[in-house]
């Protein structure tokens, strides 16, 4: 009973959309990075978001609702590094038409900075590229310097 009330309250905080994508379970601290990675700050679609919402698992979570936007898997998986537990609801005509979870891709191109200060990618304009050699915790092997950037060393570009 209590749980249902909490759920209802949460829903009320962010208004519903007719068609589009709801990205839930984003760690609150990563909200603006997620917005930047998905380029949501550059599109004209109607977007609402809520942040610092209560969530048992994440501490404080954020939620983004983008109207009339449906992401390709490659596109949405880019946020997996900073929002590994993110869940997507694809909404069509106010109903959840499909649910998706994000998955860490095998290769990460751009997005992440190599932690090695002596890496060529930190000295010249080069798109970074990493092979994901472990997913939990995340470990990324730089294609250029071959050093491994660990989860706690990951910085976004």
């Amino acid at each position: 009973m209590e749980k249902n009330d909490a759920k209802k309250k949460l829903k009320l905080k962010v208004s519903a959309i007719k068609d589009g994508t709801v990205i839930d379970h984003i760690p609150a601290k990563s909200l603006f990075e997620v917005i930047a990675i998905l380029g949501l700050d550059k599109i004209k679609n109607q977007i609402t978001f809520g942040t610092n919402l209560e969530s048992g698992k994440l501490g404080a979570k954020a939620i983004i609702k983008v109207s009339d936007k449906f992401f390709e898997n490659d596109e949405i998986n880019k946020i997996a590094l900073i929002a590994p537990h993110a869940k997507l609801n694809i909404i069509r005509d106010y109903e959840v038409a499909e649910k998706k979870i994000v998955e860490i891709p095998e290769k990460i191109t751009g997005i992440v900075k190599c932690f090695n200060p002596k890496c060529i990618t930190n000295h010249e304009k080069i798109t970074t590229s990493f092979k994901v050699i472990n997913t939990s915790p995340v470990a990324l092997k730089c294609k250029y310097c071959e050093k491994i950037t660990a989860e706690n060393q990951i910085k976004m570009l």
Partner: peptide, 23 residues
């Protein structure tokens, strides 16, 4: 002296690259 310089050069170059040491 920088690490990964040879791998990057190999992407840019149209002729073979032999790495004689990258950092």
């Amino acid at each position: 002296p920088l690490e990964g310089a040879a791998r990057y050069a190999a992407e840019v170059s149209s002729v073979p690259i032999i790495n004689a040491g990258d950092g």
